[in-house]
């Protein structure tokens, strides 16, 4: 049976792992490669690196740590942040990443998703969607870009479906309202998206307890849960999260 995936997410800024709350108040959480090896050993199913470095001169740092991670870990990893062209996407895959996630550029140039899917296959094209409840769209959830700073007027559910149609292989769904709050994933949002699309959905944003992760998978219907603060600060290990899920009948991979 396909296992529910637990995916630690490492926000990387200037080569360091950091963590914010509601996309603000950023704190240091260590070296990306050390963290990657730690989570691999704990039984992480996959890793996500989101490069939130603002300046483009620092872009080479992203390729450097992606390369270093690929040397150390033998589980899949995804890199996102600032990918604007098919060539950017190709470079990420060439450094050793298995997938790349696209967020802002999917909105400014949706054709990019079609092109990347055609060139590299749907399996490596992850579309990151950051919705916030604003009431400005039919479902109420509005897609935001530029790290949550810019509302787009696009409905999150329609957008998820369009991304699937264009060849996205997965949706990484981060609720801006829940992110970093430790108050739980946005279950109604997760459920609405998982019911709308036929591709896997990674629930993201808000995990503070083991029960929250269980809810994202059961009530939310997510195929994977992204975790950050809950593992970065040692609240739980990936193994403890999986023990909890396994005891409740959720298929997980044990190491």
């Amino acid at each position: 049976m396909l296992a529910t995936r637990i995916i630690p997410c490492l926000d990387v800024q200037n080569g360091r792992v950091v963590k914010g709350t509601n996309f603000l108040n950023i704190r240091d959480a260590g070296d990306p490669v050390e963290r990657a090896a730690l989570y691999d050993a704990q039984g992480a199913d996959e890793l996500v690196f989101l490069d939130i470095t603002a300046s483009h001169e620092k872009r080479d740092l992203m390729f450097d740590y992606a390369r270093r991670v690929a040397e150390e870990v033998f589980i899949p990893f995804c890199v996102g942040g600032g990918i604007k062209t098919v060539e950017d996407f190709r470079r990420i895959l060439k450094t050793g990443a298995d997938k790349a996630s696209i967020n802002t550029a999917a909105v400014t140039n949706p054709e990019l998703i079609t092109e990347c899917s055609r060139a590299f296959g749907a399996q490596c094209v992850v579309v990151a969607i950051d919705p916030k409840k604003t009431g400005n769209t039919p479902s109420g959830w509005e897609v935001h870009i530029h790290g949550g700073r810019t509302p787009t007027g696009i409905d999150a559910l329609d957008w998820a479906l369009e991304m699937e149609d264009r060849g996205a292989g997965e949706i990484m769904l981060t609720s801006m309202d829940a992110d970093g709050t430790l108050a739980g994933y946005d279950i109604p949002l997760t459920q609405a998206v998982t019911q709308r699309v036929n591709i896997p959905v990674i629930a993201s944003g808000g995990a503070g307890t083991l029960e929250h992760i269980h809810d994202a998978v059961t009530a939310g219907g997510a195929q994977a849960a992204l975790v950050s603060s809950i593992v970065h600060y040692g609240t739980f290990t990936v193994g403890e999260i999986k023990d909890y899920l396994a005891e409740r009948g959720i298929p997980v991979r044990r190491v």
């Binding site: 396909l2 749907a122 195929q223």
Partner: peptide
């Protein structure tokens, strides 16, 4: 209800 592609760890 089967999600396609299959993405993840399986037996």
């Amino acid at each position: 209800g089967l999600k396609v592609p299959q993405i993840g760890w399986n037996n």
